[in-house]
């Protein structure tokens, strides 16, 4: 045993190894059992995980995503089918009681996509005020759908055709149409005032 070490008890301990580095010594303790168990367990987990998720039959993250999206639209639109952004459909969504459940859906889209330019309440910002009764590119209800789909004024209003589900566009059109006349103080009127939206006549009446 070296005389250089400065540690208490060294030399008396049977577990102490014959190592001495600048006075640092080392015990010959075994590695803890639980440490081995968890280490080996993590290796087994890794092997199984790789088997299942890399070579297994499961679907990819992208597949799972696609399924989730399909299920979401299925759940949301199963009973209404395709919603075309025409006058009749837009009116129906605006007025029919059992379709009002789509308004929060449209509102969420409006808030996440449109509010940045048109304001959270539609009061306008960079883009025009949606709550007065004047419009730049809209003469009738269908035009709202068209502007959302195709955009307007060389990109001043972006085109959303490739970025939203077709039904979402129609819902959005109905939501925007309903904002007319809510007159939230904001941006000044721009454009012309089209005729009031047509009255809704439920089919079969």
């Amino acid at each position: 045993m070296s005389r250089e070490h400065d540690q208490q008890g060294a030399g008396n301990d049977p577990m102490l190894l014959d190592h001495n580095y600048d006075g640092i010594q080392e015990f010959d303790n075994p590695t803890p059992g639980w440490w081995h168990v968890i280490f080996i367990g993590s290796v087994i987990f890794a092997i199984l995980y790789v088997q299942v998720y890399m070579f297994g039959p499961g679907s990819s993250e992208q597949d799972k995503y696609n399924i989730e999206v399909a299920q979401h639209y299925e759940r949301l639109f199963a009973d209404v089918g395709d919603l075309e952004p025409n006058e009749e459909t837009i009116l129906r969504i605006m007025h029919e009681d059992d379709l009002q459940r789509f308004m929060p859906v449209a509102e969420a889209i409006f808030t996440s996509k449109c509010a940045a330019c048109h304001g959270a309440l539609g009061q306008g910002g960079t883009g025009p005020n949606m709550t007065d009764d004047a419009y730049l590119h809209v003469k009738n209800l269908e035009d709202i759908g068209t502007v959302i789909l195709e955009g307007a004024r060389a990109g001043a209003m972006p085109a959303w055709e490739k970025r939203l589900h077709p039904n979402q566009i129609t819902l959005l059109a109905a939501y925007v149409a309903k904002l007319r006349g809510t007159n939230v103080p904001g941006k000044m009127k721009e454009g012309e005032v089209p005729a009031p939206w047509p009255e809704y006549e439920p089919a079969g009446n």
């Binding site: 208490q8 640092i24 015990f27 075994p30």
Partner: peptide, 24 residues
């Protein structure tokens, strides 16, 4: 591994563990 045993003036707990955990 240098300063802790120096400051504590105690031998390192397990040489074996040092080897295994270093390489892994």
């Amino acid at each position: 591994y240098y300063f802790l045993p120096k400051a504590a003036e105690r031998p390192v707990f397990s040489y074996k563990l040092s080897i295994i955990h270093f390489w892994s």
